[in-house]
Amino acid sequence: MGFIKNYLGEVLGAVKSLATGMKLTGKYALKHRKEKITQLYPDNRDTLLLPERFRGEVVLIHDENNEHACTGCTACEIACPNGSIKIITKFDLTPDGKKKKALDTFVYHLDMCTMCNLCIEACPTDAIKMDQAFEHSVTNRNDLIKILNKPGSKIRDGVE
């Protein structure tokens, strides 16, 4: 008799524990339907807000006069762990006839970048920052190699 009692008790306990779980799942199916935890991603592009610190890609900050703050010191290139940044420098002539090192091309390999933020930390003039853009898919791999300084841009006055 004892065996049957134990067996029935076990079955009852099992049914009870399963009912508890089913109750919770059922509650979510019926009651919590308004509790939305997913986003309709491609449709909500216009309202999608990413945190300001989000690391999407590196950009060189240009102001309205098409001027940037990059001196071509290559601190970011040295700080980068996987060689995603290549700075090509040139020598500008200052008005008093001296040669001055300046940025020629800021090459950024987005395909190699791991968004570690070390270049941003290393920059002494805060010329670069992380941008929120995250839709990086392209059809050609070479499109991921970007030149960050805009054509005709030059260094802002007073940035050393």
């Binding site: 945190p51 610190r53 989000f54 690391r55 968004m115």
Partner: peptide, 12 residues
């Protein structure tokens, strides 16, 4: 994490 560190998985 995303708000403070900027990334969701590989923070550094």
């Amino acid at each position: 994490m995303e708000e403070t560190c900027g990334t969701r998985l590989t923070m550094n």
